[in-house]
Write a protein that binds this DNA or RNA. Structure first.
Lengths: 156, 156
DNA sequence: ATATCTATCGTATATTTATACAGCATTTAA
DNA sequence: TTAAATGCTGTATAAATATACGATAGATAT
């Protein structure tokens, strides 16, 4: 009965889509989605998800996944930067070669660096080409798959 | 008796410098700084500051000024990107001309755009040059001053 | 199969936090 | 000056949240 996982997902969704100011309210919404738990469990869930209650501008509070938002902000920017310059990507051995519009290689490489991917050891940028050195033993296909998984917006 | 203002400042500092997991603890620290208030007042202060209590990785909670952090993260990145490419800046009329290392113009321009400055209407990037169009009526000196004020790390 | 471990949960409760209300000082209006 | 309005606070308490403890179910090992 791996209900918790599903529940966590729904909680995330509910928090994003609604302004919720107490666990009690969230419990109701959960109940509508056919998850029936107690406040105690919900409290634990929120801790797992690192959800916190932030003071609102007007006069109240609401729950928010701030850590995620923080990551997202910076991640989104990087992905935009990559997409902006990227023309193609190809592999040979443990090297990836990205072709970019002229002059964009640097910004693409910086953005890739900023993603801090375990799978990538480092990058070098020319004018319209970025060389990516992939971690030993990792197959390019595997890397591509993981990237697409993790960053669906990435146009690879 | 404008004690609250001072207190809010100290609270910010304390929150940045310590891992605080309850208002009670924060009250102690405040007391050390010679601010003696009740938990009720502190709760109100935290609301004003939009401080929230976030779940910690390990197993606890701590107070954090997330809104500020979120802005900072994205701002810091932009400033890094600018500094990385920037060689010089000069003005003529309502235009600013930034020279960059070859290939960096684009990433510098993007970063400037991302700062969303009221004073700047737009930018265009070549390969090693960024053109900045300044808001009508604003003197270049004034713009520089404001930028340095607002972003001390910026190497202009 | 039995024992041991692990993860998840509810109950009950402790802890923490927000706020209604009243008081006081300061400011503003009359 | 007096009255009304405003901002800030403490007290007391309500409301919200976290957690100790025990129970249960499923997994893993013996």
């Amino acid at each position: 009965m791996n209900e918790r996982k599903d529940r966590l997902k729904i909680i995330k969704k509910l928090i994003k889509e609604n302004k919720i100011d107490s666990q009690e309210k969230l419990l109701e919404l959960l109940s509508n989605e056919n998850f029936n738990v107690t406040q105690a469990t919900l409290s634990r869930d929120l801790k797992l998800l690192k959800v916190s209650k932030v003071p609102d501008t007007s006069s109240g509070y609401y729950y928010s996944l701030l850590e995620e938002e923080l990551q997202k902000v910076s991640e989104e920017r990087n992905i935009m930067d990559i997409n902006r310059g990227l023309l193609s990507i190809n592999f040979s051995g443990n090297l990836g070669v990205i072709r970019t519009f002229s002059g964009y290689a640097n910004s693409v490489a910086i953005a890739i660096d900023n993603l801090e991917l375990d799978e990538i050891i480092g990058t070098i940028a020319g004018d319209d080409t970025v060389l990516i050195v992939i971690k030993e033993g990792l197959a390019p296909d595997e890397l591509l798959k993981q990237l697409r998984d993790r960053f669906p917006e990435l146009e690879l």
